[in-house]
Design a binder for these strands. Sequence first.
DNA 1: AAGATTTGACCTCC
DNA 2: GGAGGTCAAATCTT
Length: 317
Amino acid sequence: MENLGSESCYHSKAIEELVRGHEFANQLRELFNKSNEGSCGVGGDNSAVTVTFAEDLLGKVQRSFTNTLLLLNEKNNDECEEVSQLQVRDSCSWKPTKSEDSEESCKSTSGIRDRRGRYKRRRTSQTWERDSEAPIEDGHQWRKYGQKQILNAKHPRNYYRCTHKSDQGCLATKQEQKIQDEPPLFKTIYYGTHTCRNLLNPEILLDYDDCASECLISFDNSLPTKQNLPLFSSSSSSIVKECKEEIIQDHHLAHQCQSTPSQEDYFLSHEFTFDSSCCRNLTLSSTLESDHNADISEFLCDSAEFDLFEPFEILMS
DNA sequence: AAGATTTGACCTCC
DNA sequence: GGAGGTCAAATCTT
């Protein structure tokens, strides 16, 4: 990879995406303000249009963060790839231009045989690893396709693929394995990207661009991040990782808002963020570590400190 | 009946 | 050859 060139590309693209998200969020704020001005008991066509518009904007904000995550993820993995090549010989020889799915390996067709077992072992740049106290409820629909007893492992590993693989060709998969009994600890590894339109997340369908050949993302949950982020001020992978985690958190919040059953909830402010089902869902569906769960509000305030994260003030303040 | 899960077989990689 | 990942028929659930 041409790191110098691609790095600046990642950064500028990521910033572009965030700025775009910022703009959409500002529009949402305006909408929110307007809605507040004349909303006492309003209903009818106008509010329906407003809600639709708000949904659209939320989706755009989500996508913006998704694309940013993609860029950060791509960059991060490029770096990891580079390091791993230095450390060990990697015989899997993953190539970004090649399909990572089994179909690519099916070209040496045997004709009569079906596709059973004809696959290429996954080697993707987009993996996502999480430990959690319970199996992660990430908002996506997964279908279990296998279970395997792993050597020296107490518990079997479960294999899941996106429910929309067949109807939408979504290639996202995940592996889940209990790695500890007391206290229970589950490791979940996400592979690949969701290209489906999840019914719960109708806007999770991503844009493609020249810098990122694939789209992200499995919206698993985020890691605790309490510190301020030196956004894009450094190119170190740890900073990028932290940044990514922060954005995932924000994105998750946006997603939670969008999937809130009552559309009017979009326009709830404090209560919505800290007391409503949205917040509970965040905790329940999250792999946030316990100390973080106890302090979501602090995180939210921290996030809002950043200008680029201002979009989420709309939902938080 | 349709969709999800189970499970043994099969495949690739090391 | 063994380990791990995936397939798909059988079975279960809704």
